[in-house]
């Protein structure tokens, strides 16, 4: 199947490719794409891929998303690739890389953690051996990280 049939090429913007199948919605959540977003966003789920079998794909038009923000997507897939498109040409292509610290994106699963209270601090994790460790309570998230991605309004409220 030609994936071009599913989503058109974009003129300018950011293409997030090779997302693990079924995880596109989490990518939108990480990037804070919600009902307030004004850019054109298209995405496809479970698209055949020569590289990883099946994949999801997200395209955000007329917006160049910062590398730091995009790297947060590595939380849900280490093979995710980013294409920055200008005038139909890919001007930059890179694989996402998990940052050494993840701030404000993922909530601590430990209900007794101080970061889950009204204290004026963001959720904060350090990356240790590819796993997230809460900066405050030390809780390690070893699987299903996407379950703990915070909603955009929560994010905004916590980061002061």
């Amino acid at each position: 199947m030609d994936k071009g049939l599913l989503i058109q090429k974009i003129k300018d913007g950011t293409v997030i490719d090779h997302i693990p199948p079924g995880k596109a919605l989490f990518v939108l959540k990480i990037l804070g794409i919600d009902e307030n977003t004004r850019e054109i966003v298209s995405f496809a789920m479970n698209v055949p891929s020569s590289k990883i079998g099946i994949k999801d794909i997200v395209k955000v038009e007329n917006r160049v998303i910062g590398e730091e923000e995009l790297n947060k997507i590595a939380l849900i897939g280490r093979d995710v690739t980013i294409n920055i498109v200008q005038n139909y040409d890919v001007v930059k292509k890179f694989k996402v890389k998990l940052p050494s610290e993840v701030i404000g994106v993922v909530k601590c699963p430990n209900p007794s953690c101080i970061s889950n209270t009204s204290e004026p601090v963001s959720y904060r994790f350090v990356v240790v051996d590819g796993r997230l460790k809460c900066h405050y309570c030390g809780k390690i998230i070893s699987k299903d990280v996407e379950k703990w991605i915070v909603k955009e309004d929560v994010k905004r409220e916590k980061i002061k």
Partner: peptide
Amino acid sequence: RHPKEGSAKL
């Protein structure tokens, strides 16, 4: 001394 984990760090 505090009941929440991570409170001393904060």
